[in-house]
Design a protein around this nucleic acid. Structure first.
Lengths: 230, 230
DNA sequence: ATCCTCTCTTTGAGTAATCAAAGTAGGATA
DNA sequence: TATCCTACTTTGATTACTCAAAGAGAGGAT
């Protein structure tokens, strides 16, 4: 088993792990190109100077490629570690919901600390207990232990077919208030619903589902709810 | 300053938590008196100078009382925090064994990292899931959430009555090899056995139990197995 | 009475991560 | 072409540890 990232010599600190995780996230949004240093600083909630020196250090250890005044991109090694951290984060989230019964709106925060403290051995036991799941409570895919991220292409409520029954597959926001809203209106992953109509001018999307009242969402909220065909 | 060790509200760094935990342990062994700085340095595996400066910092924040060239003792505040850390450690250990199925010989090491990353919310869920246990897998008492340590007085295999059936209640050693030995010879907490005789000269204690062959232990090993009356 | 030894303390330096503030590169504006 | 703005980098300082090595106190031995 690969051991360069394991506990012992040369293990990444939790700060390094967080930078890599953030970088991976930014890179997905930025469509694979270079991530601007400003974006890194904002996402990590540090001053620009801190981001620069940290990214330089990551480049030094071969985890990222850094172009001064250009931006930063994960190296193969860095992406592998980022996916490992993401796997720990998402498995822990699912574990906290399914085994310990925490609310899905709070597990992202809780997993933030635990993802850096859990050993491969404990993670393997959690994986086993959860029967090798492929998605976390928000529908986010869980990277495999080999570092592959199984990704499906999903349409959001602003793109999917009108009048057809679809199932919620993923919620693209970890904000507790938004997740509580989703829960309150029965839009959690697994729920089936139909998009009735969209109004460009009103910036709204109207949906209906069995057993629950009709609901209208703004576009920016509707974009965060991803669905799959039933 | 009075709160340099804080991370949020009243949260000590994991280094501070480890010093307090070690100090608590040393204090139990030392019978409540002052703990020598050398003992702290050895137990924490740091140089004497590091121990001195760290203890001075702990004294600065009111967690210990420190007498230069005399020694150190936990303050009321420090003992409270130490017991809180001990509670997290032991609940996590029991959780790792009972829920995740890890071997009891390895959970002390695993809990070492996790005890600093677990929130009160998650800890409360674990406590609930385990039905509010009072001892960990080694029989060590779990401090209550209010910081009380319920302690029974137990006799070891070198002190208990001869010829009477007793039950193993606690194993006073976290060393993996010793715990594996205990497991292999069916001496885990809960097991019933009888001490047949002791030999001062041979430094040995002989025991028997149902379904298993007779066994002779050296005194130093026998001292680590604590038993209760059946 | 001095020396020796052991334990502990002090000092100086290093590492990882951070901020504030000053400096610079380079494109947009005029 | 000159200037200006924004984004980024550099610099210097700080915090929370840590070690190595030098210094000091308190005891016993010679």
């Amino acid at each position: 088993m690969s051991s360069w990232y394991s506990k012992g010599s040369g293990m990444a600190t939790s700060t390094v792990e967080n930078y890599l995780k953030t970088l991976y996230d930014q890179q997905q949004r930025a469509g694979g190109g270079l991530v601007a240093m400003g974006a890194v600083a904002t996402a990590m909630d540090v001053t620009p100077g801190t981001a620069t020196s940290m990214v330089k250090a990551l480049a030094e250890s071969g985890l990222v490629d850094y172009e001064p005044r250009g931006g930063v991109r994960l190296s193969t090694k860095g992406e592998k570690l980022a996916l490992h951290v993401l796997r720990r984060h998402r498995l822990v989230e699912l574990f906290l919901v399914d085994v310990l019964g925490l609310d899905w709106s709070e597990v992202d925060q809780e997993a933030e600390e635990l993802e850096h403290a859990i050993s491969d051995k404990v993670l393997a036991k959690i994986d086993e207990l959860l029967k090798y799941p492929s998605v976390d409570p928000h529908g986010d895919p869980i990277p495999t232990s080999k570092g592959k991220l199984p990704s499906r292409t999903l349409a959001s409520l602003v793109e999917c077919d009108l009048g057809r029954t679809v199932r919620v597959a993923r919620v693209m926001d970890q904000n507790a208030a938004f997740l509580q809203f989703v829960d309150r209106h029965h839009l959690k992953p697994g729920t089936e619903l139909v998009v009735r109509h969209r109004d460009e001018i009103a910036d709204a999307v109207s949906i209906t589902s069995k057993n629950h009242p009709a609901l209208t969402l703004g576009t920016s909220a509707a974009m965060k709810i991803l669905v799959e065909a039933v």
